[in-house]
């Protein structure tokens, strides 16, 4: 069997497992599994978007959670206003918010793109460690901004009155919502894989390997990197919208550097620069978290050292390891 076939079989098995999860967990009477796997799927989307810039563009953003937070708050705020009856803004026209998922997604993507363009224009002038730090700083800025927005709950966060409406789907039903998220994740994977294989993707990777060379070849690397940064932010915002819908609650913690760090961990753990790795990383990280926390409330004391070991010994992540197995087999 060729290694390419094995890869597809592996992916198909994973997909079938994910599809079969709801009926199986219901039979086993463990329906909390559906809810926690929905969370995993959503984080996988965020991790994919981060992998685009970290794994393919070489831009280590330590503030990616900010865009997840922006997406989540967009959903919560729009829903808050439609329930509250107060207009979100009155100029240039009155707008009361919305509860329709597609509209929420559009707004969230727009907001994320705008913020990413503005912050990216400054951040991308810097490189390496400065880039890490400035993305962190921008995320912190948003974190404090949302803490101070008392109208939207400030530090306590903002609950959502029920999920957004999705055409043809009962979004309130956890199983339907799970399948919807699975669908979006598959869409994410397809889009991301196309993107990294496209002309744009090749330029992005070139910028990662040797930006100076790319410039002397004639690429305006700044603009290409900025575009990638904005695309990644839009992806994270979509994940944020779904996350808010899943928990029906948002709080400034979504912008925290802790979450940004966790997203990076997922990407690295799974194996960066492969898209599939980001998905695997999200699954494994969140599962580890659950398993450890089942044993002890102090699960982070285990997770911390595991991370360190992964960084020191498993440099290409889980997907890299699987690929190696596949090639050797």
């Amino acid at each position: 069997m060729s290694s390419i076939n094995r890869k597809w079989i592996f992916l198909l098995v994973c997909l079938s497992l994910l599809i079969l999860l709801p009926p199986v967990s219901q039979t086993l009477d463990e329906s909390y599994l559906i809810s926690s796997m929905t969370r995993v799927l959503i984080f996988a989307m965020a991790a994919i978007s981060l992998d685009l810039i970290v794994g393919y563009g070489g831009m280590v953003s330590f503030g990616h959670a900010a865009f997840v937070g922006l997406g989540a708050y967009t959903a919560a705020i729009l829903s808050f206003h439609i329930n509250d009856g107060s207009p979100l803004f009155t100029m240039p026209f009155a707008y009361d918010g919305t509860n329709q998922l597609w509209a929420v997604l559009l707004v969230a993507i727009g907001v994320a793109a705008l913020v990413a363009t503005l912050t990216g224009m400054i951040s991308l002038r810097t490189h390496r460690i400065h880039f890490i730090m400035i993305t962190l700083a921008f995320a912190q800025m948003l974190y404090y901004l949302f803490i101070s927005l008392d109208y939207y709950g400030g530090e306590d966060g903002l609950p959502m009155m029920g999920r957004n409406q999705i055409p043809l789907i009962d979004s309130g039903d956890d199983t339907s919502f799970y399948y919807f998220c699975l669908l979006v994740l598959i869409l994410f994977i397809i889009l991301a894989r196309r993107l990294v294989g496209s002309h744009f993707g090749r330029v992005l990777q070139g910028c990662k390997y040797n930006e100076k060379r790319m410039q002397t070849l004639g690429f305006n690397t700044y603009r290409y990197r900025l575009t990638a940064y904005v695309i990644a932010a839009m992806g994270a915002a979509v994940a944020g919208v779904l996350l808010a819908n899943k928990t029906e609650y948002v709080d400034p913690g979504l912008f925290s550097w802790h979450l940004s760090g966790e997203l990076l961990v997922m990407v690295i753990l799974g194996g960066m620069g492969s898209i599939y790795g980001a998905v695997i990383g999200a699954i494994v990280y969140l599962l580890l978290e659950q398993i450890f926390s089942a044993y002890t409330e102090h699960w982070m004391i285990l997770l911390g050292p595991v991370l360190i070991l992964v960084v020191i010994y498993a440099r290409h992540g889980i997907y890299g390891y699987l690929q190696k197995l596949n090639q050797n087999a």
Partner: peptide
């Protein structure tokens, strides 16, 4: 990290229109 042909294709790509092409495989 890229093949010889990809190296050259990338160099050619730089001079052939823009590379804001996101879908078709390069």
């Amino acid at each position: 990290e890229m093949s010889v042909l990809d190296n050259l294709a990338l160099a050619i790509q730089a001079h052939h229109g823009h590379s804001y092409r996101f879908w078709r495989a390069a």
